[in-house]
């Protein structure tokens, strides 16, 4: 079940990339067919840990990449983050 570790790493990256005054609402990840990560397990683990974290609500989009059309199938990436502006207490 290394998907739990992968899900934790996704949340760590979201924290690192988030700036003051913004709240991440959606994270897009890219999973290659050869990296041995099961998308359904990753989604399950992500949902299990995000709902009790400081980042909730945060949704996950998984792009499954086959080794074709210039892709190697070894992708294990955070592709993008979507942010919403939030009020910052002064």
């Amino acid at each position: 079940m290394h998907e739990m570790g992968i899900a934790s790493s996704v949340l760590e990256t979201v924290r690192k990339e988030s700036r003051r005054g913004e709240r991440a609402s959606r994270v897009g990840v890219r999973i290659g067919e050869f990296v041995a990560v099961d998308p359904d397990s990753l989604r399950f683990c992500f949902e299990a840990i995000v709902k009790t974290s400081d980042l909730a609500p945060l949704s996950l989009e998984i792009e499954w990449c086959r080794a074709e059309g210039g892709r190697r199938g070894d992708e294990l990436q955070i592709a993008y983050l979507e942010f919403e502006e939030v009020e910052v207490a002064t």
């Binding site: 992968i6 790493s9 996704v10 294990l76 990436q77 955070i78 993008y80 983050l81 942010f83």
Partner: peptide, 15 residues
């Protein structure tokens, strides 16, 4: 809503 391209390995700390 603002989308930011990250393109960073999920396991960047391990890497």
């Amino acid at each position: 809503m603002n989308r930011v391209v990250i393109e960073k390995s999920i396991l960047s700390e391990n890497n």
